[in-house]
Design a protein around this nucleic acid. Structure first.
Length: 428
DNA sequence: TCTGGGGTCCTAGGACCC
DNA sequence: TCTGGGGTCCTAGGACCC
């Protein structure tokens, strides 16, 4: 038996915790570079702002009514950690599925609904993040339950009873569950995206109920094992387990769109270095080493009239490393002849591949299998953790206060929970 | 003028092995 | 007339997730 607990409009709710004036207002959080809406309060949804919609596509009359914030992932990540800490204390087995969602194993818990409601209240009281809980015999059904619970909060009466943000599908009769499934368009299910839902509709499968009851060999044959699993999960047959331990990453990517188009190769090379430094920090935080490096750059593909170039290059390292200097050195060689003159670049990125645990790397008889200076890197990481990111670094990043490629973040709120300078002030 | 970032898994086909 | 069987690895493309 699974529960899924999910923060409502998570990023928007994080902003509201420390900015009470945003409560009750239509609020939109934008993607990096202040591009698209990636979170919307209920009020903003009611105004018709769509998920992923470029903010400049929102009609000015609507836009004027919106409170807008730039993405503040430092804040959201920290709030997320607070929520998971509460969940971990409450439930013996938990899988943190994303920044705003966790699955819980409810096996052995008798009063499921009471438990869920208590947990939901506690998370809200202790963190300020409103949330909903869905319960089901499988992960897919728990996800659907969460969906139902959110609907029930928004539109009371749409679900058998007003359940205060908790929906236990496992407590429903088969007929009542069928009713819920019949009311769910197939595209709203976890694991069914826009492509598959279009293809399913062509086959006359429009609701979750129709998918559950469709011929299994048809689903397997036309869509493969992934959708076949979803189908079985809908029928209450668990195919997905609780993944308590997060598996090691296979790759780490750091990429950004630039705040403006950039032609200067030196500046872009500094951007590459900056991204590589960040990627290596993430790598070390996970205790991994990398054996391959990739870089890419893109011109502005939204401007078809401009000359386009999107080069990409990968290199294998002779020895695995987590030392930023080794990566930067490789990066410098990879960049020879990489960019072309006369092109204006809009986005670039670095990714680290073939990641592994240093102790699991196949050793070399004649040379160390992992190279770099761990102590130096640990010291740098410790200083930056203690005194803030970028306190010590490497010259290749250009060390500029506000480089030309820096992303736009015009409406960034303070780092309320992670920076002493940004601590909220209380006046009385 | 403006249009995000970061991941995973599955499948099919080709190369290659014994 | 005959022309095996079984396997791994790699890559590209396509789907999904938040």
């Amino acid at each position: 038996m699974f529960a899924l607990i999910d923060g409502n409009n998570f990023y928007a709710s994080c902003e509201r915790v420390f900015q009470p004036k945003l409560r009750g207002k239509p609020l939109v959080v934008l993607s990096n570079n202040d591009g698209c809406a990636i979170a919307r309060s209920d009020e903003a949804k009611a105004l018709g702002v769509k998920m992923g919609q470029p903010i400049h596509d929102v009609p000015p009359a609507i836009r004027r009514q919106l409170a807008i914030r730039s993405a503040n992932f430092t804040l959201y990540g920290d709030m997320s950690a607070r929520v998971s800490a509460i969940l971990r204390e409450a439930a013996p087995r938990i899988e943190v599925y994303s920044i705003d969602e966790s699955f819980l194993d409810l096996t052995g818990i008798g009063e499921r609904e009471a438990f869920a409601r208590e947990l939901r209240d506690r998370v809200h009281r202790w963190t300020g993040i409103p949330n909903c809980v869905g319960i089901g015999a499988t992960k897919t059904l728990a996800k659907l339950g969460n969906h139902v619970a959110k609907d029930a909060v928004r539109k009371p009466g749409s679900y058998p009873a007003q359940l205060g943000g908790v929906a236990d599908l496992a407590a429903l009769s088969p007929q009542a569950l069928a009713k819920v499934l019949a009311a769910t368009p197939v595209g709203e299910l976890w694991g069914v995206g826009s492509r598959w839902s279009a293809r399913l509709r062509e086959l006359g499968i429009e609701t979750a109920l129709q998918l559950r009851d469709a011929p299994r060999d048809l689903v397997l044959q036309r869509f493969g094992v992934v959708l076949a699993r979803t189908q079985r999960e809908l029928a209450g047959d668990p195919c997905l387990v609780l993944d308590e331990v997060e598996p090691d990453r296979q790759q780490i990517m750091v990429s950004r769109s630039f705040g403006q188009r950039v032609e200067d190769h030196q500046l872009i090379s500094e951007a590459f270095a900056t991204f590589a430094v960040r990627a290596c920090e993430k790598l070390r935080a996970r205790g991994l080493v990398t054996s391959a490096i990739g870089i890419f750059a893109n011109t502005d593909h939204f401007r078809a009239e401009l000359r386009q170039h999107h080069p990409q290059r990968t290199t294998n390292l002779p020895r695995a490393t987590s030392d930023t200097r080794v990566v930067l050195d490789t990066l410098r060689r990879m960049q020879r002849g990489f960019l072309k003159d006369g092109f204006a670049y809009k986005k670039a990125g670095v990714w680290l591949m073939d990641l592994g645990r240093p102790e699991q790397i196949q050793p070399d008889f004649f040379a160390p299998s992992v190279i770099g200076n761990d102590k130096l890197m640990s010291a740098m990481d410790a200083i930056n953790r203690r005194y803030g990111r970028g306190t010590v670094g490497l010259g290749a990043t250009g060390w500029r206060v506000r480089p030309q490629w820096a992303m736009r973040q015009a409406k960034l709120s303070p780092h309320f929970t992670t920076s002493l300078r940004d601590l909220p002030r209380v006046r009385c």
